[in-house]
């Protein structure tokens, strides 16, 4: 899933100076699962905003809504009849949803209510960790299904570096060394000899380095 974190309200408030109505807009997908921008967080932020506006003596209408997905025009269309009642939208969707909402309603000010962090998964309740950076050319087959792009601090394809210590990365004791994991996995698979195969220079043109990316599937296009 896409993992996000809530922005502090202090960062959001200056954007809402002078607005008379604001819609806090959640998303029912990833940000719900990572507890950053689902219905619950929409309620929390809306209440907090109402309190601040009341303290400031401002009358601001704070609406709440959570869409099935903000990255899908079909669901965004559900706002068509109600959005004009608001001066601004604070979207708690990931960066994709925020932009899609803004694209769909070009005359509306749309602000981010979360920081979108990475593609990852929950290690346990309340702990999420990065697993993939969408490099466009997956090489997990070579690395025992542990991603060096997303999980090695130096994205080494032929690691580990000299800083790997007791399974931890040189950048800090709370970060796992991806290469320790890769070697453990290769060992578990009986493939440790594969470690000595040099992974060739990567084609980064399929990564963000190649410019904004698009996937076009002629066979499913309508």
């Amino acid at each position: 899933m896409i993992v996000a974190e809530r922005k502090p309200i202090e960062e959001i408030l200056p954007w809402l100076e002078g607005v008379r109505s604001v819609l806090v807009l959640g998303c029912n997908e990833c940000v719900t699962v990572c507890e950053a921008g689902g219905k619950k967080e929409v309620g929390l932020l809306a209440s907090a905003l109402r309190m601040v506006f009341a303290q400031q003596g401002r009358e601001v209408n704070v609406g709440e809504r959570t869409l099935e997905r903000q990255c899908d025009p079909e669901y965004l269309d559900e706002l068509r009849d109600s959005i004009d009642a608001y001066d601004a939208v604070v979207s708690l969707a990931c960066g994709v949803g925020i932009q899609f909402t803004a694209e769909r309603y070009p005359s509306k000010a749309v602000y981010p209510g979360v920081n979108t962090c990475f593609m990852g998964a929950a290690l346990e309740r309340g702990v999420w960790a990065e697993r993939c950076q969408g490099c466009g050319q997956c090489l997990l087959a070579l690395t025992g299904a542990v991603c060096p792009v997303a999980r090695c601090a130096k994205r080494l394809f032929n690691g580990p570096c000299g800083g790997s210590t007791a399974g931890k990365c040189e950048i800090g004791p709370d970060v796992e060394c991806a290469w320790q994991r890769i070697i453990d996995r290769l060992k578990a698979l009986g493939r440790l000899a594969d470690y000595e195969t040099l992974i060739p220079v990567k084609d980064w043109s399929k990564d963000r380095a190649g410019g904004p990316r698009k996937v076009v599937r002629e066979d499913v296009r309508s």
Binding site: P160, T165, I183
Partner: peptide, 23 residues
Amino acid sequence: AAANPFADPFEIRVPRLAKKIAA
């Protein structure tokens, strides 16, 4: 190239050197 005989994981310290030489 550099080599660190003391880094972890220990079992690949020599294979890692072999890899650098092969590179």
